[in-house]
C-alpha cells in the first residue's frame, strides 16, 4: 500500500488569510476521505463479514423481543425491537480498529515516513475510519431492512396504537451523540495503542479494558432492565455512552440528555489531553524498526 499523495505541504503557513486556510483544510479533508473511501471499497467482502461479526445486537434483539412478548419488562416488545435496531445501527458507526493499524505500523516501522508528513498521523486513522463507515452503510441498511421485514411490529407503537414516529429533535441530537461516542471510543483505543511505543501486544490490554463494554454498554440488554444499583454503576463507566445513550436518542426515549453530553465531552477532553501527552513522550522514545 503506497501512502496517498500529499496535496499541500504548507500546513504551517499561518501567514495565509483565514479563508484561504479553511479552503486548504476542506480540500485536504475531501481528498483524504476520497482516497480512503476508494481503498475501503476494495474490501467490500470483508466489510460485509464485519457487519455479521458485529451482529450480537441482533441476537439479543431476538431474545429480548421474545422475553418481552411473554412477560412484562421495562420495555414493550416493539420498543425492544426498536431499541436493538438502534443499537445495531449505532454499533456499526462506532466501530474502532485503530489499534490494529497503529500496532502494526509501529512494529513494522511503517510509522516512520508518516512522521515526516506535515500532518499528524492521527488524521489518517480518522479518515480511514470515517470512510470505512461509509462503505458499511449499504450492508447494514440491508440487514436492518431484513430485520424490519421479519418483525414489522418494530414500526408500530403499542403505547399510542399508531405508527411509530421518531421524535425529530432527539433524532437530530443522535447524530452528534453517535459521533462523539465514536470519538470517545476512538480516543480510548488510540491512547491504549500508543502504549505500543513501549511494549508489544497492546491489543490484549485493550481487549481487557473493553470487556465490560459487551454487557455494560447496553448491547446485551437495555439499561432500563438493569437492577437500579447495576444501572447506577454502569452510568459511572464510559460504556453506556458508547451505545445506550445514542441508541435511546435514536428511538426518542432519551432522558438526561444534558448529562449525557456533559459526560461524553468530559471524557473526550480528558482523553484527548492524555493522548497528546503520551504521544509526545512516545515519539521521543520511538526508535524506528531497522533505523
Amino acid at each position: 500500500m503506497t501512502p496517498p499523495p500529499v496535496y499541500s505541504t504548507n500546513s504551517t503557513a499561518t501567514d495565509q488569510p483565514v479563508g484561504q486556510q479553511l479552503v486548504t483544510f476542506l480540500r485536504r479533508v475531501r481528498v483524504f476521505l476520497a482516497v480512503y473511501y476508494a481503498l475501503m471499497i476494495e474490501y467490500r467482502g470483508e466489510i460485509l463479514l464485519w457487519v455479521f461479526a458485529t451482529a450480537l445486537p441482533l441476537i439479543m434483539l431476538g431474545l429480548w423481543y421474545q422475553a418481552a412478548s411473554d412477560s412484562t419488562f421495562a420495555l414493550s416488545p416493539d420498543a425492544m425491537l426498536r431499541y436493538f435496531l438502534a443499537v445495531f445501527f449505532v454499533r456499526q458507526l462506532v466501530v474502532v480498529w485503530v489499534i490494529h493499524e497503529f500496532e502494526w505500523e509501529i512494529v513494522s516501522g511503517r510509522l516512520t515516513p508518516y512522521l515526516l508528513w506535515p500532518l499528524d498521523p492521527a488524521w489518517r486513522y480518522v479518515a480511514a475510519h470515517l470512510s470505512e463507515q461509509l462503505a458499511r452503510v449499504p450492508f447494514f441498511l440491508l440487514v436492518m431492512g431484513l430485520v424490519i421485514w421479519m418483525f414489522p411490529e418494530a414500526l408500530h407503537d403499542t403505547e399510542t396504537g399508531t405508527w411509530w414516529s421518531p421524535k425529530s429533535w432527539q433524532l437530530l441530537l443522535a447524530i452528534p451523540a453517535i459521533y462523539s461516542a465514536w470519538l470517545m471510543r476512538f480516543l480510548i483505543q488510540y491512547t491504549i495503542a500508543l502504549g505500543a511505543f513501549w511494549v508489544e501486544r497492546v491489543q490484549s490490554f485493550e481487549n481487557l479494558a473493553m470487556l465490560p463494554y459487551l454487557f455494560l454498554s447496553g448491547m446485551a440488554a437495555p439499561l432500563d432492565v438493569f437492577p437500579p444499583l447495576a444501572q447506577k454503576i454502569a452510568m459511572w463507566t464510559p460504556f453506556p455512552y458508547m451505545i445506550y445513550f445514542p441508541a435511546t436518542l435514536v428511538t426518542g426515549r432519551a432522558t438526561n440528555i444534558v448529562q449525557g453530553f456533559a459526560v461524553i465531552t468530559a471524557w473526550i477532553v480528558g482523553l484527548f489531553l492524555l493522548n497528546r501527552f503520551i504521544w509526545r513522550r512516545g515519539v521521543k522514545n520511538y526508535s524506528a524498526m531497522g533505523a
Binding site: 467482502g45 463479514l49 464485519w50 461479526a53 451482529a55 450480537l56 441476537i59 431476538g62 431474545l63 421474545q66
Partner: peptide, 30 residues
C-alpha cells in the same frame, strides 16, 4: 477460492454467541 474471506470465521464466531442461551428463548424464525 476467496483469499480475502479471512474474516469469515470471525463472523461465524460472532454468530455462535447465540449458543449462550437456550434455543427456545428465541423467536421462531431464529
Amino acid at each position: 477460492w476467496f483469499t480475502k474471506l479471512f474474516n469469515i470465521t470471525m463472523a461465524m464466531q460472532a454468530m455462535l454467541e447465540a449458543g449462550r442461551f437456550p434455543i427456545s428463548a428465541y423467536p421462531n424464525a431464529y
